[in-house]
């Protein structure tokens, strides 16, 4: 991904300037970077393992079938639930959604899936709780879920 390459260039440039300006500070920065990474690494691994299990049950084909076949309010609801509990990289999610759109699936369920996929993170909830506590994490995800449902109906209404 180009964005990742840009981040590497940015980080290298910042690191080199920092080294040129102050070696001790730079060492401290790298120690901090390492410390925060080690701190969060177990949770990252947990999320990655969880996503593996989840996608073993909710394959892209299965998700397509749900979003493509179910229609009406139930379909929208189901699509939003699937979006909320999955964590799929954009380079898989968008082509899948595009395929669905071209094979005649409704705009509203697709919008529900995309919106809740982005805004709601059930898989990343353990990490979020670690940083923000249970109350903020649960309320943020609940609000985001309800909003993504509303957003789907608005997008569906505007575009049809």
């Amino acid at each position: 991904m180009i964005s990742t390459i840009i981040f590497y260039i940015l980080a290298s440039a910042a690191l080199i300037s920092s080294l040129a300006a102050d070696r001790t500070k730079t060492r401290k920065a790298l120690q901090m970077a390492w410390k925060s990474f080690v701190n969060i690494a177990p949770s990252f691994v947990g999320v990655i393992l969880l996503v593996g299990i989840m996608l073993a049950f909710l394959s892209p084909e299965f998700i397509s079938r749900i979003i493509g076949e179910e229609s009406g309010a139930a379909g929208v609801l189901l699509a939003s639930v699937v979006g909320a509990v999955t964590l799929i990289p954009g380079f898989i999610a968008f082509p899948t959604a595009s395929l669905l759109l071209h094979s005649g699936a409704g705009l509203t369920p697709i919008a529900a899936f995309i919106s809740s996929l982005m805004m709601v993170g059930v898989m990343t909830l353990p990490v979020e709780i670690e940083y923000f506590g249970t109350r903020v994490s649960i309320s943020r995800n609940t609000a985001a879920y309800l909003f993504s449902l509303a957003a789907a109906f608005i997008i569906g209404a505007v575009l049809s």
């Binding site: 990742t4 981040f7 910042a14 790298l30 901090m32 925060s36």
Partner: peptide
């Protein structure tokens, strides 16, 4: 790169 930028 995210963590390096964070540290800096």
């Amino acid at each position: 790169p995210i963590f390096i930028l964070l540290g800096l």
